[in-house]
């Protein structure tokens, strides 16, 4: 063995819509939208569209598929037309990676100083990742995470992850 047992793959069919608004506005939106905006900080919950994550007191990400990107955007836009809110498609600004396998902890511990062991399934965190920045979704603790990095860094981070995973770290 000369590498960690992990699989690293790009997440290709992911659309991201960024929502900035106050918590009160978010509460109102939840009543209008077909999905719920989480109120717990740094948590993601499953919705009919996909994962919806609360990243800051006034920021949410709605993850969906690319073919639903415009529909989700329009839905949010229409719902916030008279509100102080910002709805922005950011699917191309970010690139997602999934890191899965039995050995993801030592690989992630090389990429980020964030203590992921304290985060259970459904947690989201942000921080330095592979010397750039990353938004990390803990899908299954110590087994599977999804990381979103600025897409301009994607090629570098893919190579970096392959390097720190070692020779047997595979990429789909």
């Amino acid at each position: 063995m000369n590498g960690y047992r992990v699989n690293i793959r790009r997440l290709d069919d992911v659309a991201l819509v960024n929502l900035r608004c106050s918590q009160d506005t978010a509460a109102q939106l939840t009543r209008k939208l077909p999905f719920e905006l989480p109120t717990a900080p740094m948590r993601a919950s499953e919705s009919t569209e996909g994962l919806v994550a609360r990243l800051a007191p006034d920021q949410w990400w709605i993850r969906t598929t690319l073919d639903r990107e415009q529909a989700v955007f329009s839905s949010l836009k229409d719902s916030t037309v008279n509100e102080f809110a910002a709805v922005t498609i950011i699917s191309d600004h970010f690139q997602g990676f999934e890191i899965a396998g039995d050995n993801i902890d030592p690989v992630l511990a090389q990429a980020t100083s964030v203590n992921l062991n304290t985060l259970n399934d459904g947690s989201v965190t942000r921080g330095k990742f592979a010397r750039s920045g990353g938004t990390i979704f803990v899908i299954e603790q110590s087994k599977r995470v999804q990381v979103f990095v600025e897409s301009s860094y994607a090629d570098y981070i893919e190579a970096y992850l392959a390097s720190i995973a070692g020779a047997t770290g595979s990429r789909d």
């Binding site: 090389q110 301009s152 090629d155 970096y160």
Partner: peptide
């Protein structure tokens, strides 16, 4: 340096035109 060596010595950003 750890893994920060060779082509990975510095983080690099690409554009879609790269």
């Amino acid at each position: 340096g750890g893994a920060d060596r060779g082509a990975l010595i510095l983080p690099t950003r690409n554009t879609p035109i790269t």
